[in-house]
Design a protein around this nucleic acid. Structure first.
Lengths: 186, 186
DNA sequence: AAGTACGTTCAGAAAAAACTGTACGTTGTA
DNA sequence: TACAACGTACAGTTTTTTCTGAACGTACTT
C-alpha cells in the first residue's frame, strides 16, 4: 500500500476487500496458465501493489513461508508475469507484476505452447519417418500398408496443425494479432 | 487396430512403437489443456484408433480401471476432444477422438477461457463499483483517492483486456482467425 | 419379470504436488 | 577478515489429486 497511514481504516478496509475479490478470482482461474492457485494469488497481490515487493513482504502478506514465495516468484518469472526490479543499493530483490496482460498472454504462448509444439513435432517427425521406412519394407502387404497410410495421414494432419499453431503464435509475438482483433473496440 | 491379424507381428510392432512415441508426446503436453497425463494418453490412443472404442477396450489398452476410463472420457467430452458415437444396436457406449485439432483448439478457448473471463469480469465489475462508491465517500481525502484511482485504473485496464480476449475467442469460434492465419501455409 | 451387462457413484488407497524449516552458499557490510 | 542478511536447495510433512474396487441404478434381453 502507498502512504496507507494517511488512509482512514474503514476506507482502507473497503479497498482491501475490493482487491481481495479480484485477487481471488485471478488466483482461481490462473490454472489456465498452469500455475497454482497460491501462485496466482501471489500474482494478484503483486498486481495491486503500488511498489515492488520483497520475498519477505510477500510471505508476510500471503502468510506463507519465504521458500514458497521464492519458488512461486520463479514460476511467475519463467512465465514473464513478474519482473525483477533493480533498485540502487537495495539489499533484497524486488519484484513487480507485469501490468500488460496482452503481453502476458502472448508470452505464455511463446513460452509454453511453443515448447509443447516443438516436442510434439519432433515425435511426429520421427514416427513419420519410421512409418515411411516401413512402407518400403511392407511392399505388397495390403493390410499393413493400409494401417501405415492411415497413421501417416493422421500424423501429416497433426503436423499441418502445428505448423499453423506456430504461425499463430508468431502473430501473438509480432503483435499482428491486433490487426485482426484490435485492442480498441472497433 | 484394423484387420491386424493380417499384419505380420514385427511390422505391427514397429507401427505400435511409432504410435506410442506420438501418444506419449501428446500425453506429456496435454496439461496445456488442463488435463492429466493419463487422460492425454487416453486421448492419444483414441486418436490413433481406427474404430471407436468402448470403456472396456480403453481400460484394457491403458491397463487401468474402467472407472478411470469413465472419468477420463468425461473430461475429454467436456472439452469436446472426444465424441460419443452412436452405433445401431450397440450395447456399450463408443467414443472417438475429435480429429480436427483446429476445432479442438478453438473449443478449448470457447469453453475454458471464456469461463475464466466471465468469472474475472464479474469480480472486476463488482470491485470497480465498490471503489467508485468509495470515491464519493472519500471526497477530499487525497491519500485515499489516490489509491482508489490507482486501483480503478488497473481494473479498467484489466477489463479492456478481457473485452479484447472475448473478441479474440470470437474469432476462434467463427473461424475468422483463419483470415489472419490461414490454415494453408501462404 | 428375472437376469445380465453397462456406466457411474462413492469411499478408501496410492501417488503426486505443495508447503515448510533447516541448512548452505553468496554477497555486501563492518 | 569476520559478520550478517539474503535467496535457494533439500528432505520431510501435509495436503491434494488420481486411481481403484465394490456397490448401485438403469436398460436391455430373454
Amino acid at each position: 500500500m502507498l502512504p496507507s497511514d494517511a488512509v482512514p481504516e474503514p476506507h482502507m478496509h473497503t479497498i482491501l476487500k475490493a482487491r481481495k475479490r479480484v485477487i481471488e478470482a485471478i488466483g482461481k482461474n490462473m490454472d489456465l496458465y498452469g500455475i497454482t492457485q497460491s501462485v496466482g494469488h501471489l500474482y494478484g497481490m503483486l498486481f495491486f501493489s503500488e511498489k515492488p515487493m520483497t520475498l519477505d513482504e510477500m510471505g508476510k502478506e500471503m502468510e506463507m513461508s519465504k521458500t514458497s514465495m521464492s519458488t512461486g516468484v520463479r514460476n511467475l518469472l519463467d512465465l514473464k508475469m513478474v519482473h525483477k526490479v533493480w533498485e540502487k543499493g537495495a539489499r533484497k530483490d524486488l519484484y513487480e507484476a507485469e501490468p500488460d496482460w496482452y503481453q502476458t498472454f502472448a508470452d505464455y504462448f511463446a513460452i509454453e505452447w511453443r515448447k509443447a509444439v516443438e516436442a510434439n513435432v519432433i515425435a511426429l517427425n520421427r514416427s513419420s519417418a519410421e512409418l515411411r521406412r516401413l512402407q518400403e519394407a511392407a511392399d505388397g502387404e495390403e493390410a499393413t500398408l493400409a494401417i501405415i497410410q492411415s497413421d501417416l495421414d493422421k500424423i501429416d494432419s497433426a503436423l499441418r496443425y502445428y505448423e499453423w499453431l506456430n504461425r499463430f503464435i508468431d502473430t501473438l509475438e509480432s503483435g499482428d494479432i491486433y490487426k485482426l482483433v484490435p485492442k480498441d473496440k472497433p
